[in-house]
């Protein structure tokens, strides 16, 4: 197996696992969102890296260019970035509201405050 040749995948996997780890291991709600962001970013890499050919250009039909990069992954990831930004924005907005309601953004403190209050409305 060509380990070095697949280095972009290694980076992807590292980011993915690191992001997931942060989401799981951190109790701070903002840090969790940062982890989530890193996790999502790894996917951008997964898509974009294979679309790039070394020496390739944008797919403009002209006699002087022979090698083209695939533009589709870029377009897809543009969409994914928008989705990621929206998710992050919403997540942060929720954290703001949580902080207003609980006066804390630490998960364990919040759960502690809710204990014994079983009756949802």
């Amino acid at each position: 197996m060509n380990v070095a040749g697949h280095y972009s995948y290694w980076v992807t996997i590292f980011l993915m696992v690191a992001g997931l780890y942060i989401v799981i291991a951190r109790g701070n709600l903002v840090k969790k969102l940062i982890g989530l962001g890193i996790f999502q970013t790894s996917v951008y890499l997964l898509y974009i890296a294979p679309g790039k050919l070394i020496g390739g250009t944008a797919p403009v039909l002209a006699d002087s260019f022979k090698i083209y990069s695939n533009p589709l992954p870029h377009v897809l990831i543009l969409t994914a970035i928008v989705v990621g930004v929206a998710t992050l924005a919403l997540g942060l907005a929720l954290v703001v509201r949580i902080r207003e309601a609980y006066d804390s953004i630490e998960e364990d403190e919040i759960l502690e405050k809710d204990r014994g209050e079983e009756d949802p409305r």
Binding site: L20, V23, T87, L90, G91, L94, R97, I98, A101, D114
Partner: peptide, 20 residues
């Protein structure tokens, strides 16, 4: 939008898991 404050936490948890 649920009226209990725990709705916020429920939404946040769903957001994290849903995004994953």
């Amino acid at each position: 939008l649920g009226r209990n404050r725990r709705a916020l936490l429920a939404a946040y948890q769903y957001l994290v898991l849903g995004t994953i």
